[in-house]
Simulated scan of single mutants.
Amino acid sequence: MFIKSFHKQLIVLFVTASLFYSCEETINPDLEDADPKLVVDAWLNNKVEDQVVKLSWTQPYLENTLPTGVSGATVVVTYDGGEVIFTEDANAAGTYRWTPTDVTSADVFGTIGRNYKLTVQVGAETFEATSRINRTVAIDSITFEFEESDPQYPDNSYTAEFWATDPVGKGDTYWIRSYKNGVALLKPSEINVAYDAGFTAGGNFDGVTFLPPLRSVNPDEEDENDEPLSPYEPGDSVYVEIHSITLEAYNFLNQVIIQTDRPGGFAELFSTPLANVSTNITNLDPNGTKAVGFFNVSAVSGMGKKLELE
């Protein structure tokens, strides 16, 4: 019995060692190049500032360069009673911009409940997408906490969170965008979306204070040894915005998180397989080239605070 048991243990050890050795082996896959597709990056809002639509082409998966901008396109957003024409930036190919003429008054994107249609014409092809601007929620306050001992951060760290209450009425969806010292937190692990005051439709967190994990507005930063850093230090500032988004945009961002926040290593064996992320961009020609990306128009509330010791 002892010999049989020892023999089984040797087999297990050998298989385990082989598995980890395989994980370290360098593989250079020979991937086929797909035809380029139009990428539409159109996240507009009701802030009185420049609104920007970015157009680019997809590129091979292993290409280590920035995507090529799409020049010469026609970009228009229409709504009941008006239209907004976006003009290509002369210094940034593929960047189309609209600047409000009167920054002291609400711009045309400021009406909650209004429907919008984006039309993009590239060559002989025309692409469209629609979005509705939903209500957002005001931020009540931002607080900093001194953490003497927290397993996620080094000892004596400062963390931040916002406080807000979801309005009564199920189905509100939000993108919570945070900035540290004016720099947006856009890593996959820092994307923060909410359904009402919780994570999913089944959570039943309508009309209550946002849950603690959602309230966290801390950057995911590491030092040169890959050790976590304190999210904030005295003198740092945090700015938080709550963007209302459509349910389709909420699903899109959740898919982005799943497809881009990859732990790597052995854990990848149990991760969700890579897949295409959904889009609301449609080619008017059903037999034409498919596009990727997303169009959403948000109502935005915001608040900022600086970490100052008393």
Score class of each variant (00 low, 15 high):
S278D: 13
D35F: 07
N91S: 15
G123Y: 10
K305F: 02
S216E: 07
T289D: 12
E161Q: 14
Q9I: 15
D172A: 11
L38A: 04
T143Y: 07
F294E: 00
L186E: 14
Q51D: 09
Y116D: 03
F266N: 04
D223R: 03
Q255H: 04
L38C: 09
N45F: 08
S5M: 14
G264N: 13
E125W: 04
A164S: 13
D155G: 11
S18I: 10
K306M: 10
S149M: 07
D50K: 14
Q152D: 12
E145Q: 08
R262F: 04
C23F: 15
N276W: 02
I281T: 01
T26Q: 12
I258G: 01
K37V: 05
S230D: 06
V15E: 07
D150C: 04
R97N: 10
V120R: 02
S157H: 01
E148R: 09
G69E: 01
A164N: 02
V122S: 06
E248W: 05
I27V: 15
P263Q: 14
P273S: 10
E25S: 07
E147P: 01
V238M: 08
N45H: 13
T143I: 09
Y96F: 13
T260N: 15
L31G: 01
T165Q: 09
N251D: 14
G69D: 03
V300Q: 09
Y232I: 06
E128S: 05
S5W: 12
